[in-house]
């Protein structure tokens, strides 16, 4: 943490290398958020880099009142919301007009599995699952997607999300319910009542 403070200080003095080191710590987390938000690796690359550029421009204003990541996440959410508005203006009425999901394979998109030694069938199944998840996410609005990611991946509370996205907590809950149901549907997760006889009892313990 002390190291991070020093890096922030150096970055505030204009040291780009220090800023890049800071970025290295969080770049995967920001990229993962952007990837699930945009569902397109290229756009995720662009969007996450835009977050870093904005953070770089604004780092002089960081006073350490909240943690660095909390501050960075605020920038991330704002960048995502701006992106959402830009996309609305650019392609109003259309649903992702230039999405390449249909045009290029998952390999080309860089959706390669973390373990290269897996069996081909396993790889194929994983790719299919990734596609299903992305399809499920595409059924949600950008705002619902963002709310779901902020809750599930970032662990923010309802109130924090509501403040960040300028919506009510009721909207947050509805968005989460819808998101989780879409995922259930696309991933084909269903349980019959008979299977669950002792499940709740186990959970409670």
């Amino acid at each position: 943490m002390i190291q991070e403070d020093k890096l922030i200080e150096r970055a505030q003095e204009g040291d780009q290398e220090a800023f890049c080191l800071l970025a290295r710590t969080y770049q995967r987390r920001i990229y993962a958020l952007a990837l699930h938000y945009t569902r397109d690796p290229h756009e995720a690359d662009d969007l996450s880099q835009e977050v870093w550029l904005k953070a770089y421009r604004a780092i002089c204003g960081f006073r350490g009142e909240a943690g660095f990541y909390t501050w960075l996440r605020r920038i991330t959410v704002n960048t995502f919301l701006n992106h959402q508005r830009e996309m609305k203006t650019m392609y109003s009425g259309e649903k992702k007009a230039f999405r390449l999901g249909e045009l290029v394979s998952l390999d080309e998109l860089g959706l390669t599995p973390a373990e290269p030694r897996q069996a081909p069938e396993e790889l194929l199944q994983q790719k299919m699952m990734v596609e299903k998840v992305m399809e499920g996410l595409s059924e949600l609005t950008a705002q619902q997607r963002l709310i779901f990611l902020l809750k599930h991946r970032e662990g923010m509370t309802y109130d924090e999300i509501a403040r960040a996205c300028a919506v009510s907590t009721g909207t947050v809950k509805k968005a989460l319910f819808r998101a989780i149901n879409r995922l259930r549907e696309y991933l084909g997760v269903k349980f019959s009542a008979a299977e669950d006889v002792s499940y709740a009892a186990r959970e409670r313990r």
């Binding site: 994983q126 599930h152 995922l183 259930r184």
Partner: peptide, 18 residues
Amino acid sequence: SMTEALRVFDQVTETAMP
């Protein structure tokens, strides 16, 4: 099924990372 969907989502999203 909701908790399971989230579990599968987490597993799948790990593999989607570059």
